[in-house]
Each structure stands twice: as structure tokens, then as C-alpha cells.
Computed example of a mutant assay.
Amino acid sequence: MKKNNYSLRKFINDIHLWLGLASGIVLFLVCFSGTILTFDDEIKALFTDKVAIDASVSEKASVASLIQTLEQSNQGYITGLTLPSNTDVPYEFSVKKDLKERRGSQVLVNPYTSSVHSVEKTRADAFMMSMFKLHRWLLLDIAVGRPIVGIATIIFLVLAISGIVLWFPKKIKWKTVKHGFKIKTNANWKRINHDLHNTLGFYACVFILIMGITGLCWSFEGYKDLLGRIMGTKIFDRTSTEFEIPKTAENDIISIDEALAIANTTLNYPGELSVSFPNKKNNYYTFRKSNDNNWSPVTRDNLYMSLNGTVLAVEWFKEKPLNVRVAALIKPLHTGEIYGQFSKIIYFLACLIATSLPVTGTIIWIHKLKKKKKKKKL
């Protein structure tokens, strides 16, 4: 009577193999597009016309006068503004031709010469949008592509966890474990391919897990809500802060330049300052500022100000509860923006490795099939 040699490790190996083969093409496309999207802004910037700024030419014009210039040039409704921390970068105005538009467009203005530069869409923008659609829903209809990507992401999480288990040898000793940390470059191509899959997969698995756990928030609303309940706060909370503001007399309304000065005085540190102008829904200014000296370029403090210059509230990012801070960082944790260029490079390499795993894994499987066929013939 033959013994049953089907062990738990063999079961995990089969799960890893067949799930990997079943999702290989989808995972390759999602990871490939994700690799490119890591440097989304940088790629777009390469193909965008630069606006030369010479700070020594003259003094800066007031923001009020720049807004007047934009209105006279019939750019549209001005809904917001971003002031850079560097003097050689133009101001960026958010403009909508129709207030019903969701996002609108950006217009760059030289604060020293008041020259207006509309940001035109380039081929790079179209290409990156294609990569975005490929990454999020495989260029398919959203209702079809989004769940497919979500299911593939779940599979990738299972593959990452099972891959970590399989990375460890049956007998865990330093002599056997240490081989998993390096690629044997002087071996034959089959061994090199195996090491590329095994070793590189091990190094990238932590980042794959982070990207997968956070990425599911865009695929499944139920998952996002469940994660929010577990964390005790909303994920992607876009609700507006409500204030009871008495009607402001015309004479008491301050200028935009005065409002910016108050905001910079309250948020007293160097950094990029963005402001959303009052509208029918929210009759107050909303300021967001990032600290150039902070550990992360994506953390921002918020300030709310009435039309007469009264500071309604200040939300300091570092003073928010831990769960709220983590929830606010879901997107930069997924995209790699969390630590700026340093983390982007790490994420780029991790995504590149993740893109290679379905390829190297399939080659390993094909090689094993060939070996089995040879044994049967013998």
C-alpha cells in the first residue's frame, strides 16, 4: 500500500502554481502598468512645455491682480490656486469652463510678468491615461474590468503569502536559507530564472502585500468600507467640514492676498500652499499646506477661513489620531509617494519585479513539465 505523500507544503505549492498560471496575464498587465504609473507626474512633465520664471526681473504681482488677468482673458471660473514654495515655479490656478465640471483644468501664471500659460494635453497624458485605465480596469468597461483586477489582486496577495512560505526550505538552517538571498549568476539559465523568481519575489513581497492590500480599496466598495470599519475611520473621506458662519458684510470681506497672508502666518513653515475658493456649497476658504521639512511630502495641514479672515479651524496632520493618519495615507502607500522620490524608486523596482514574476514562474512550470515528460518516456 502506497503512502500518501501529499503534504501541506505540496498543497501550498499547487495553490501557488495554479493560481499563478490562472492569473498570470492579468497580473502581468496590472503590474506592468503600475510600474509605469509610479513616475506618472515625472513622465508627463518631460513632455510638457516649461514656463521659465526669472525672479530677479521684478516683484510679484498680487494674486488678486493675477485673477483679474485670468478673468479678462476669459479662462473660465477660477476655483482654486496653488502657490509653490520655490520662487522659480509658476502659480497654478484651477479653472472650470463650467462649474458643473468635476475637475476642470490647470492654468499656469508667471507671478512676475502676469503671463498666462494654458496647460495643453500631450501624447504623454493620453498614454498615461491608457496606463491608468489598464491598471484599474484592463481597458475594459469599468463594471467588468474593476472586479477582474480586484480578484487578480486577491490572488496576488495569496501568491505573495504562499511564495514567502515556499521560499523557506524544508529544513530551516542558515546553510540552506542563505541561498534564497542571492541569485547564482554563474549557473545555467534555468537556475538563474528560478533564482530571479524566488529571490527577487522574496525581496519584493512586502511591497506587493502593501500595494495589494491598499489597491483593493479601489476595486471593491465593500472591502473599502470594511477596512474603514476595522480602522475606525472612513477611507477616502471626501466629506466637507461644516461650519455655522454668519453672513459677512461686504465691507468686512478680505482680499485673497490677505487671506493667503493669514494662512501662511498660521501655517508658519515653508511649503506648497493650495487654496480652494468659497463656493455655493462651502462659503469659506480651504487651505492645504505641505511642509518642505516634513518626513513625507504628501502629509498636509488644513486650515479653514471665513470671508472676513476669521480662522474657523486648523487640522494639524500630526495631531490627528493614528487611524485617521493611516487612512489618509492609503493612496500614497499604494502609489509609492509616501516618502517622495526615494520610495518611488523602491516601488518602481518592486513593481518591475512583480511584473517579471508571472513570466519567470511560467518558465519554471514549462521546464518542470518537460522534465515530467522525459521521465514518463524513460
Rank of each mutant, 00 (worst) to 15 (best):
K171S: 11
N74M: 06
I12C: 07
R229N: 15
T286G: 04
S94D: 09
L273M: 12
K100D: 11
V298E: 08
T35Q: 11
I172E: 04
V95H: 09
T69S: 14
G180K: 09
F181G: 12
D98H: 12
K374R: 14
E221H: 11
K60D: 06
T82R: 13
P90I: 08
L349E: 02
I43C: 07
F39C: 08
A126G: 01
A160C: 10
G163M: 07
W167C: 05
H367F: 11
L196Y: 12
M131A: 10
V107W: 05
I230V: 15
R102V: 13
V26I: 15
L226K: 10
E272N: 14
A152H: 03
F156L: 15
V206L: 15
N193S: 07
F28K: 12
A143P: 01
D49C: 02
S296M: 07
K234W: 01
F127V: 14
F317V: 02
V177F: 14
I183R: 02
G340K: 10
A55G: 12
E258K: 15
T79R: 11
L99S: 05
K182H: 10
P111E: 11
T48N: 05
S255D: 08
I253G: 01
T335Q: 07
V107C: 06
I43H: 06
R9H: 10
K96W: 00
L307I: 07
I192Q: 13
P90K: 11
A263V: 09
H117W: 07
D14M: 07
L27E: 09
T233I: 06
K97P: 00
K377C: 02
S356G: 12
N186M: 07
S219L: 04
R123I: 11
K280T: 13
I338R: 06
T286H: 13
G309T: 12
G201P: 08
S33G: 11
K50V: 12
T153N: 13
P321D: 09
L273A: 02
F202H: 03
P332I: 11
L216I: 09
G80N: 05
G232Q: 05
F132W: 13
